[in-house]
Each structure stands twice: as C-alpha cells, then as structure tokens.
Amino acid sequence: MLKKLYYYEWVALRRILIPLYIVMPVLATLCFLLARLVAVVPAESLLGNLLTILFATAIFFSAVAIAMIFLAIALILGYRYYRSFFTDEGYLTMVLPVRGRTLFLAKVASGATWGGVALVIAVLSFLLMAWGASSTLVGSAFEIYISTAPGVPAVVTVLITVLNVCASLFLQLILMYGAINLAGLVFRKYSILGAVLFYLVSNTALSILSSLIQAVVLVFLAPLTQNPNMLSVISFYSATAISLLLDAAIIVAVWLMSVHVLEKKLNLS
C-alpha cells in the first residue's frame, strides 16, 4: 500500500513540480551563458557595458527566482498535504483501507523526495551561476567556509554540513505536516492560518531551545581547554551533535503526534 500511496503522490505533484524544477536550471544556464558572453565582449565597449548590466540584473533576479521557487515548492508540498486530508479530497484519502501511519509515511517520503530533489537542483543552479560569474568564486567561497571550523578536516566539515542541511530540511517538512495536523485537530475554521501559527511558534521555540542548550554545553566544555583551536573544534562537534539530536527528538515527537491525530482524533466534519 505504501508504494501505491507514494506513486499517487508522485502523480499528483509531478505536473506542478517538474515545470518548476526545469525553470531553476534554465535560469542558471541563461546566466551562465550571459556570463560567457560578457567574458568575450570587450568590457570598455558600449555592448560590453550593456551586457555587464544585463548580466548583473539577470544574476540578481535569477537568484531571487530560484530561492522563491524553492520556497514555493515547500508551500506546494504543504498545501498538497492539507488538501488530501482536510478538504473534500479527505473523503477519499481517509476511507482508504490503510492505517494513518502509512498515509503519513507516504506523504513524508514523497515530500522528502520532492524536497530533496528541489534542494539539489537549487544548489546546482546556484553553483552554475556562481561559476559563470567567476570560475574561482566557488573555490574561494569553499575555502572561506572550511576556515570557519579550523582543526576540523575539510571532508568532515562538508559531510557534517550536508547532514545538517538534510536533517534541518527534513525537520522543517515534518514540522510543517505536524503543524497542519495539529491545526486540523484544533481549529474547525481557519486551519491554514492555525497551521502557519503552529509552524512559526514551533520553529521559534526550537531555535531558542537549540541555542540555549548549545550555550549551556559550551559553558561546561570551555574550561576543558585553553587552546582556542581545540575549543573551536569542540564547539563545532558539540553544536553539530546537539543540533542533530534535537532534530531527531523533535522529528520523533512530531511523528508520533501526527500518527495519533490521523489514526485516533481526526474528524472530517
């Protein structure tokens, strides 16, 4: 049943998301080609000046557009989730002969897949635009980023960054779905507004909690060493560990709450 639910989620979303996925690399490619054109035309010429202005404008608006498309994809995933449970389509979804946890798992798996693909395409698009702007820009930016964690091997920094980003985005997906479930349970009217409220409150609370825990941990760890580099390494790893553990705990809590709502509490009145 899970495979079938996942498949129909894919069918439902592909006609909206695939065009958006195509737009991102197209914009990036246009910027890249414009950059190549700027490179071959003499900068002092009128055409060169015009192309430079056009390129700068294109880079700016393309970057904004790609960011907006990424955000729109997240909103589309949320709205799709809301529609399939809390609107008339819920009369179809909630009478399927599957448990609520299976329905939720299918939604999360589908959302994580589409969201993950969107992230990869967005990142590659930005890298393409940056490479077009300057072939050394990406390398310089990478070196600056690696230097923020001195003493930590570059490979470890990159892997932990990727892990953190994936965990954070997965957490945001779960928080969004959890907020929609909770709002659907609590509010009979204005549940979308309620979901936005719950999402913002939970994110704020999570940020504060994470910062507090990291500060407390650093207070205890700081006396362990007088070496600033070692302190930097300890700080890096402890922040990562706290962040990942907190994310995991919140994901489990929201998961259990969502399954409970879908299986025991939801009323489609």
Binding site: G90, Y91, M94, V95, K264, K265, L266, N267, L268, S269
Partner: peptide
C-alpha cells in the same frame, strides 16, 4: 454515515 465510514471518531 461518516462514523461508519471512519471519517469521524
């Protein structure tokens, strides 16, 4: 009807 269908608790 909705209770029997499982849409209400």
């Amino acid at each position: 009807i909705k209770l029997i269908a499982g849409l209400l608790v």
